[in-house]
Design a protein around this nucleic acid. Structure first.
Length: 271
DNA sequence: CACATTGTTACCAG
DNA sequence: ACTGGTAACAATGT
């Protein structure tokens, strides 16, 4: 569930709190999601200092002082929490990084779908190469967006959520941006005029920025690195509002599966 | 207790 | 080689 704004919020928290600290220890109760192995991860990271923290799509990447990097994927329910040693335990914590200055980084994950991977900076990693351009960066603007989507034949919502086409957009921000752009989620991407595509891209930027402003959407169990919920869910227009009135025209919002994923839209406003 | 959940990949067909 | 469509998968609270 954490999408671009949620992961970026966590990234900023972590940057503020733990860049410059040294990793003293690593413990896991769920080695199945630690790659290449618990033992090798320990060998690679203990003693190294966290130099910088980057986000790519929905991934977080810690760059270490020793030419290794740690990649985190939170998937549906992962949380990264900054705590002090001895703080009360956090439910569903499966991995703990002991840090200098008495700090801890705890990876909690109810569903256990999230993972940790440590690789060398020079190692080519398929996972990091597959992503499309980042919205809110120089890599994308309305015209480039149009070029990227204009030949895609699948539903626009699936194009938005395809990490290989555009990085970081998930179900919440796809639903919300399509609503604001008045585009039906199942419209084929190649069916959108340049004008419509430009509008859509601007709406994507808008909802991502709103998400950042409210420190993410805690519709489910998302929390920032301090364990605090975001507030963007209070501003959803359609996401999770199946059978409620459209905020624009009052028509009952419809729910469909698009590509097997829950999708809410206004049948009147979104064509 | 079967189900919903969701980002991602595996697999297949075209 | 690439695209699109669908199933499968991770695990568990409800």
């Amino acid at each position: 569930m954490p999408e671009l704004p949620e992961v970026e919020t966590i990234r900023k928290d972590l940057e503020k709190e733990i860049v410059g600290l040294t990793i003293l220890d690593f413990k896991t109760e769920w080695p199945k999601k630690v790659f290449p192995s618990e033992k090798e991860v320990k060998r690679r990271i203990i003693g190294a200092t966290i130099k910088s923290i980057e986000r790519r799509a929905k991934l977080l990447i810690f760059h270490l002082s020793n030419n290794y990097k740690i990649i985190f994927h939170l998937k549906i329910s992962g949380q990264l929490l900054i705590r002090c040693k001895g703080n009360p335990s956090d439910k569903y914590t499966h991995h703990v990084f002991g840090l200098s200055k008495g700090k801890q980084l705890r990876f909690a994950d109810l569903r256990k779908f999230g993972y940790i991977k440590v690789i060398s900076e020079t190692e080519k990693d398929k996972e990091l190469e597959k992503f499309g351009p980042e919205p809110l960066s120089q890599e994308l603007n309305p015209q480039k967006f149009y070029e990227i989507i204009k030949n895609r034949k699948k539903p626009i919502k699936l194009v938005l959520m395809d990490q290989g086409i555009i990085a970081g957009v998930g179900n919440i921000y796809a639903n919300e941006s399509l609503f604001l752009a008045h585009i039906h989620p199942e419209r084929k991407a190649n069916n959108l005029s340049e004008e419509k595509a430009v509008t859509l891209y601007k709406k994507i930027e808008q909802v991502l920025k709103e998400g950042l402003e409210f420190r993410g959407a805690s519709d489910n169990n998302y929390v920032d690195a301090y364990g605090e919920k975001g507030r963007y869910q209070e501003h959803f227009r359609v996401y999770g509002k199946r059978d409620k009135p459209c905020p624009k025209c009052g028509t009952t919002l419809k729910y469909n599966k698009v590509g097997g994923r829950g999708t809410v839209f206004c049948p009147k406003c979104q064509k």
